[in-house]
Design a protein around this nucleic acid. Structure first.
Lengths: 320, 320
DNA sequence: TCCGATTATATTCGATCTGACAATAAGGGG
DNA sequence: CCCCTTATTGTCAGATCGAATATAATCGGA
């Protein structure tokens, strides 16, 4: 972009100070045995990341490089999530600016090449309240009163009402429906109310089994962004197939969607929508591994164009 | 983000080279007299922008600062669009990296404070094929054969079929429906087929009345991204109200949505959805400026929480 | 003052979509 | 051969959506 204004207003030295470090950071997701998994590195709970460097041809290729180097995993589908400026970084090197560009990536676990210093964890370890596949999780019984307590603790009445409403919408209180796409809003509410480790000085934090595992820096927030994006996207774009093996049964496909959404789907309705949209075609083979009647195997119809062109695909996720 | 790996693999000098300039760039939209308008600066067709500087408290505040300084317009609603690395910048200052972070902002025209070196233009000057409010625009009769010609010009059959399909989906050929959200895909197709000025060396470009006004650098691409995002967002989040005066008639609201979407909406259906979602409330006054029966004036219900909390609002935009 | 032109507002109807449930088919194991 | 398990197909009522129709209120001119 041209900035004629800048050239005139600032000297060359001041301009130099405008530079910033740029980090690329990845939320890499796979689904195994109906469990949505996140790729982490090191012993700690850290997302793969690295600086955008001169030798990178593009932001995306830089990200692919870092992830492959740190984890041995080649990435397929990639999508930019959000860019933010890291604050609270001043001090280390005075007046240094850092920008983080985060991405969502989808793969399959088997595609690892090297061992590397990395591992997979269910993303529900970090967000125990997000898994509603076996009904409302018990941790919500603990979090709900504390959220209400937080809301009531506000000084003025307006703030109290606003907090109550936000909590009610995000967590489905007062017989509202649970909306699985509000993952980020829920995380932010728990952060604001200091119910999770990253938020406060560890004073009133609930045990990890309730508030979930913490992550380095703001990585858990980035993960929440990725989950929300993915949960929203599977409803109108055929991205699930990036997570599937070449051939699969319809129930396996359903279980994968359910794992991501964190809620159950009505089986016949799911089949109806998948079939009537012609997203898949039969391979002709069947799978006997199911225990009951053999299931037909399907493959993704690649005639369905990729993300950039397809519009209008939908997956049925019960609202009520 | 922590990058232990980097510290070991690269020296301090190499690390310094990883720094990049960061630009903030804004697509500022307002709607006046049923016309969606874009805020541009200078004589040329340029979006407001400026470098992310040390004195900025955050990316958003930096953007607000630049837009206000360059145009005299305070911004209300802001939303991050996309971050990209500018290529083709090497040469000017060797090995310099530049990152652009783009934002979508919504305002009203009247809110300008200073005169400043800026102006408003209808965004359909840049995208004549996007306005379907008076039926299919005539420019499409010119673009269609040229797009087909481009598709047929591919070397192998697979590419030809893929190009035809992409064009058909994006532009609604072969009695497909027009999908107003595919603004970016359409721009990219026209770019690939060298039908617009920014794409080629100006050899086979259609006249501006057909291919639309060009913009500086890749600003028209950023604008396309912003239009697509806005057209998508108005369907499930109450952002239109950022563009309305404090009180308005339902027809004014409808005309604003139509201006953004570039297509007409059925009037009774629009009213039904707006009312049953309780997005607005009557002010008690009426407007006599309509020529016929006076229209009730409404205001936005601020009880409806902002973007971060509300989920499920919908505006009716006919699909067929 | 009446009439029609214009626009706002309210109501109805049919097609489609969606969620919930039921029924049937095909394998394995006792 | 019966029973258990899972796959697959079918049905049905309610909600939603697009389109069209009917009624109300104001203005301007005959």
């Amino acid at each position: 972009m041209d900035h004629q204004a800048k050239g005139t207003r600032q000297g060359r030295a001041a301009l130099k100070a405008d530079e910033a470090k740029v980090d690329l950071i990845a939320v890499v997701v796979a689904v195994n045995d109906s469990e949505p998994c996140l790729l982490t590195i090191g012993n700690a709970d850290t997302l793969p990341s690295g600086p955008y460097a001169l030798e990178h041809r593009s932001l995306q290729s830089g990200l692919r490089g870092w992830v492959e180097q740190q984890t041995g995993h080649p990435l397929g589908y990639i999508e930019q999530l959000y860019t933010f400026a890291d604050r609270d970084r001043i001090g280390a090197e005075r007046q240094e600016r850092a920008i983080s560009i985060s991405y969502l990536a989808l793969t399959r676990k088997e595609q690892a090449t090297g061992s590397a210093n990395c591992g997979w964890r269910s993303w529900y370890e970090y967000f125990p309240w997000e898994d509603h596949r076996s009904g409302t999780p018990v941790v919500l019984d603990i979090l709900r009163p504390r959220l209400i307590e937080w809301a009531e603790g506000a000084s003025d009445a307006t703030t109290r009402r606003e907090r109550r409403q936000r909590a009610a919408i995000a967590f489905g209180f007062d017989d509202r429906n649970w909306n699985e796409e509000l993952t980020l809003q829920r995380y932010e509410l728990l952060y604001e109310s200091a119910l999770i480790e990253e938020a406060g000085g560890g004073r009133d934090v609930a045990p990890a089994a309730v508030s979930g595992k913490a992550m380095i820096a703001d990585h858990r927030r980035i993960l929440a962004t990725g989950i929300a994006r993915l949960r929203s996207k599977i409803k109108y774009r055929p991205v699930v197939f990036e997570l599937m093996r070449p051939s699969f049964t319809l129930l396996q496909l359903q279980r994968t969607v359910e794992a991501l959404a964190g809620r159950l789907i009505n089986k016949p309705n799911f089949r109806r929508l998948v079939e009537q949209q012609e997203l898949v075609e039969e391979t002709g083979e069947t799978s006997l591994e199911t225990g009951g009647r053999p299931a037909k195997l399907y493959r993704f119809r690649h005639a369905v164009l990729d993300d950039r062109a397809v519009a209008g695909t939908k997956l049925p996720l019960a609202r009520a």
